[in-house]
């Protein structure tokens, strides 16, 4: 579950506040939680065990991310002038080049947010799409060989899955099947009061 405030970091806190007798529940990440703690009185600690548990399990990732975040704080995208600190505050990047400028901390962030750092979906339409999937597969195969050689099997398994996903996609594209309308579930079935 993502933080309901910033939408970027995973939510480790369940914040319950009672405002004018109305109960409001929100799921927040530690950073946004800290902001709220300063602002809001009357935090309900009834769920303390759950909070502690999630802090402990999420702690290590948090630490690593915090280290990277601190390291890159002053880093600036030369294209649009966005600083990494600015991104951390607003949660949005300034241009496509920001993804290159902040590549290292973003890789860690994407891994935490999506559990993955390799795109497995469509590529932009047009004549080059098939080619670029193939390029992608080639690149991943090289990485896979290296991972196997280094005995990094977890990484190798991830790469294998990514290659498989891309290969399926390539097949589909070359068969000129765009979105495969999956076995129509129970669609087209008229029922109930359809003919009123």
């Amino acid at each position: 579950m993502m933080c309901e405030e910033c939408g970027i970091r995973p939510a480790n806190f369940h914040l319950v506040t009672i405002i004018n007798g109305e109960r409001v529940e929100r799921n927040l990440c530690p950073t946004c939680m800290a902001k709220h703690q300063k602002q809001l009185p009357g935090i309900d600690f009834s769920n303390l065990a759950g909070i502690l548990n999630s802090i402990l399990s999420g702690n290590r990732d948090e630490e690593e991310q915090a280290k990277l975040d601190a390291e890159y704080e002053m880093c600036t995208c030369e294209q649009c002038g966005m600083t990494y600190a600015e991104f951390q505050k607003g949660g949005m990047l300034g241009c496509a080049n920001c993804y290159k400028a902040f590549k290292t901390p973003l890789t860690a962030l994407l891994q935490r947010v999506h559990g993955n750092t390799q795109h497995a979906g469509r590529v932009p339409g047009g004549v080059h799409s098939g080619t670029s999937i193939r390029m992608n597969i080639d690149r991943l195969r090289q990485k896979l060989q290296k991972a196997v050689a280094d005995e990094e099997y977890e990484q190798a398994a991830k790469l294998r899955d990514a290659i498989r996903a891309l290969s399926i996609q390539l097949e589909r594209r070359e068969g000129d099947i765009k979105v495969q309308p999956q076995a129509r579930l129970k669609t087209e079935r008229g029922e109930g009061n359809g003919d009123v």
Binding site: M92, L106, Q118, G121, P124, G125, N136
Partner: peptide, 25 residues
């Protein structure tokens, strides 16, 4: 639309969104 005016795209990260939470597909 993308055929006419290319969208921000990266082979590793897919379609680049303003928020990394939407990047990929």
């Amino acid at each position: 639309v993308g055929e006419k005016y290319p969208f921000a795209f990266d082979h590793q990260w897919g379609f680049l969104a303003a928020s990394p939470a939407n990047t990929g597909t």
